Simulated scan of single mutants.
Amino acid sequence: MIWRNIASNFLTLLIVILIAAAAAVAWAKHQFSGPGPSSVAQCVQVAPGASLNAVSKQLAEQGAISSSYIFRAGTDYLDKSRDLKFGSYMVSPNASMEDIVGVITAGGPSTCGTEVTLRIGVRENTMLLRDVDPGTGTYEEQARYVPGVEDKPQEIAAAEDQSDVRLRITMAEGVTSWQVVEALKAADFLAGEISDVPPEGSLAPDTYEVDKGADRSAILAEMARRQEAILTAAWESRPFGLPYETPQEALIMASIVEKETGVAEERPQVASVFVNRLERGMRLQTDPTVIYGITNGEGVLDRGIRRSELNARTAYNTYQIDGLPPTPIANPGRAAIQAALNPDTTEYVFFVADGTGGHAFARTLEEHNANVARWREIEAQRGQETDSPVQTGE
């Protein structure tokens, strides 16, 4: 009888323990997958080589999670404890522990924290220090300067020495390979020599995250790898009947499209004009190629094209030569490459600036001349008339 009571009590206790354990598991699961304690966005940083234990303690201290133990247990249960990715990531207000695990194990570009960015532009390069405001989730500029022209602000110099700061290089569409090389040479947070300027058009405009002391040649190699991948994919999916025999010819066209318009939506239309001209045996007659022949891609031509330069027969003067110039005239971005290989279907063979930043397109010379007259009026009103002919078709 005694043993029966003991057994009964033991079973009762075991049931209570199991119910309590199940309740604890359910509560922990709710804590892991339910809304988190932070009512504002949080910048979560994962240091290089950081352990799950260190990250969980950091998250608890900054109020992003309610329990470091539950966070570790949940991460282990998802089998992601070894998948932490170095970087700084913005997580939304009230993000669950499960959401945060997903963010810090997925990786990808950092989305918050302090960053120093070298922006390589067509007209100038800038170094920019930015930091994310967790309350708004937006970057706020802290300091900037033009390398080689201005002294480096102390804030940027100090930030470059911080172990958790992100260093980025952002290359704009339409810059030349010479401009990229010169910008990398002037970036004192990089290392290594550059022996040669890469072929024009071979570098992908994009944002590149780098480490302090990164090798300049390795960065150029990565830029070239990305551009090759973009061009190969676009070439392989091109429609039938385009007037290019090789991917290089398509890249040359993309560079012309890139330099001819700053309006993204216009790229396929601009490409259609040049494709139509090639197919009809018309000269391209585009100013950017002439300018490249003058500058060799080394800097910007801060004046109009002279009549003598338009009359000179050079390899890049498409007013004087048939077909495409021998090389690209800049590094085109993905959108320009896509436009060159997927142009709109139009009958346009002329275009000229329309005064809004875009262009007026025409099918006939009569239409084009009317558009030119309107542009000349705008030029006269602005006091900007030059000896250069209008784009494509005079």
Rank of each mutant, 00 (worst) to 15 (best):
L13I: 15
I17M: 08
A21F: 14
S39D: 15
G49H: 01
A50R: 11
S66A: 15
G74C: 06
S81K: 09
R82E: 15
K85S: 09
E98Q: 10
V101L: 09
G108T: 07
S110T: 09
S110R: 11
T117C: 05
L118N: 06
G121F: 01
N125P: 01
P134R: 06
E150K: 05
I156T: 03
A158M: 11
D164Q: 13
V165M: 13
I169M: 04
T170R: 13
M171T: 15
L203Q: 03
T207H: 02
S217F: 05
A224W: 00
Q227C: 04
E228T: 15
E228K: 14
A234L: 01
R238T: 10
P239G: 00
P243E: 08
A250F: 00
L251M: 06
I256K: 00
I256T: 00
G262K: 03
R267K: 12
Q269A: 13
Q285F: 07
D287P: 04
P288E: 12
I294R: 07
G299E: 04
D302H: 12
S308D: 14
A312V: 03
N317Y: 03
D322Q: 12
G323Q: 09
P326A: 10
P328Y: 07
V352A: 07
A353F: 07
T356D: 07
A373H: 10
G383K: 02
T386G: 02
S388K: 02
